[in-house]
């Protein structure tokens, strides 16, 4: 049971086999303004798991660049803006687009694209410094993207 889940997760990350109803990174439809209208999993995300994606170094590590004043996470960075009230400023479709590939919303931004698998220069195998191999996948899974969107949607003032 455990094993199946693991194998399944690895296959998903590699972008080879997508679970039913999950949109693969190559198939994401983005509007001219950078919105992604529909859920990548066809289901709403879980805000609590989304907070983990936001704060864990091994997941989204959003806190490397962002701070949320109401949350106590050690060492938030300030390369990006404070995310307080983000859901007042952006619709869900816009937030999804920002996480999937923020470059469409903010031209030239330093914020990474979390659900894209092509167009990189010298992509590596995670943080090893070695070239990417066929385990290469998006920074976050479709579920993780939806979870972090659900979390961001709670950021209202």
């Amino acid at each position: 049971m455990k094993l199946t889940t693991l194998t399944f997760a690895a296959a998903m990350v590699a972008g080879t086999a997508m679970a039913e109803g999950v949109v693969a990174p190559q198939d994401v439809v983005m509007s001219e303004y950078g919105e992604v209208a529909t859920s990548l999993t066809g289901k709403p995300g879980d805000p609590e798991r989304g907070f983990e994606v936001y704060s864990k170094r091994s997941l989204g590590n959003c806190v490397a660049c962002h701070e949320i004043s109401t949350l106590d996470v050690a060492w938030p960075g300030n390369v990006g803006p404070m995310l307080d009230g983000a859901a007042d400023r952006w619709s869900e479709a816009e937030l999804r687009g920002i996480v999937v590939n923020s470059k469409k919303t903010f031209e030239g931004t330093v914020m990474p694209a979390y659900y894209r698998v092509d167009g990189f220069i010298r992509p590596g195998n995670a943080y090893t410094g070695k070239a990417a191999d066929d385990s290469f996948g998006p920074l976050l899974t479709a579920e993780q993207v939806e979870d972090v969107i659900a979390f961001l949607s709670t950021l209202k003032e």
Partner: peptide, 18 residues
């Protein structure tokens, strides 16, 4: 890289930031 950052992204645009 996958994070698409240049030396300038960190050391020119963001020096002084955390």
């Amino acid at each position: 890289g996958q994070l698409e950052l240049s030396c300038a992204s960190c050391h020119e645009q963001n020096y002084g930031n955390m």
